[in-house]
Nucleic acid binder design. Structure first.
Length: 252
RNA sequence: ACAAGGAGCG
């Protein structure tokens, strides 16, 4: 059954509904057919693949759904435009943990219901780092830089995810120095924060600074290369873009 | 063992 779990995660990650259904068939015919753990992963897989009907059916077939089952279903609904159904699941839960609350928060944000998100955020019994960062992303992804910074300053703790979200918000709004100071203040920069900073310079039109930072990167991956390439494209420096394209390790 | 938050193209 850990093999099934691995297969289902691959299907989820690659949005492969066809393969996911095949795995589901295999599970049904195996002796793990009543395994709640696997059923939960099936809900997740169907949700990621956009099949709300099958996610619902799988959930309904679980004799005793646990908190994971409910949270997977909430996410499946919220991510596929059924916020009202997500609410119904949420309301039906007896004990609502911080993950359930945060999943609903995330659902409202994906529907751009920022006011509802704020209401949930302030009304929650508990908030953890993910909750705070989810609320932060509501602001950063919708152009509320002041609100984002205000929330960021009040966060009890933060990590790479929160720092990178804030870094991007500064960069996108033209505050490159503030973005850079977050970048420099990170305990250790990872590939995503590097790419976000490079992209920030490129978007601001400072392609030279983007290139300089890129040159300092320990191990640029294809995402970083593409971001830089796009920066040269936007800057109309097609010669440099071509050079970058040929310098890329795997240019396909 | 499984759930919620951060990067480019598609």
């Amino acid at each position: 059954d850990s093999q099934f779990a691995k297969l289902l995660k691959v299907c989820s990650d690659s949005n492969d509904l066809i393969k996911g259904r095949l795995v589901h068939d295999q599970i049904r015919r195996s002796r793990c057919h009543d395994n709640t753990f696997l059923a939960n992963l099936l809900i997740q897989m169907y949700g990621k693949c956009g099949s709300v009907a099958e996610a619902t059916k799988t959930f309904d077939a679980i004799p005793r759904p646990n908190e994971f089952s409910c949270n997977m279903l909430i996410a499946a609904y919220a991510n596929n435009g059924h916020i009202n159904r997500a609410e119904a699941v949420f309301d039906s839960m007896g004990q609502k943990g911080v993950v359930s609350w945060t999943s609903m928060l995330s659902g409202y944000i994906k529907h751009r219901r920022i006011r509802d998100a704020e209401r949930i955020f302030h009304g929650m019994p508990d908030r953890n780092l993910v909750t705070w960062t989810t609320m932060l992303s509501a602001y950063t992804q919708n152009g509320y830089l002041d609100e984002a910074w205000c929330l960021f300053e009040r966060m009890p703790s933060c990590d790479m995810v929160a720092l990178t979200a804030m870094l991007r918000a500064f960069a996108e709004n033209g505050y490159l120095e503030e973005a850079r100071s977050i970048f420099n203040g990170m305990p250790v920069q990872d590939i995503i924060s590097w790419t976000t900073m490079v992209k920030g310079y490129a978007q601001a039109g400072d392609i030279d600074q983007a290139q300089r930072l890129f040159d300092c990167m320990p191990e640029p991956n294809v995402v970083c290369w593409t971001a830089l390439l796009q920066g040269y494209g936007d800057a109309q420096q097609l010669g440099s873009a071509q050079r970058i394209f040929h310098e890329m390790p795997q240019h396909d």
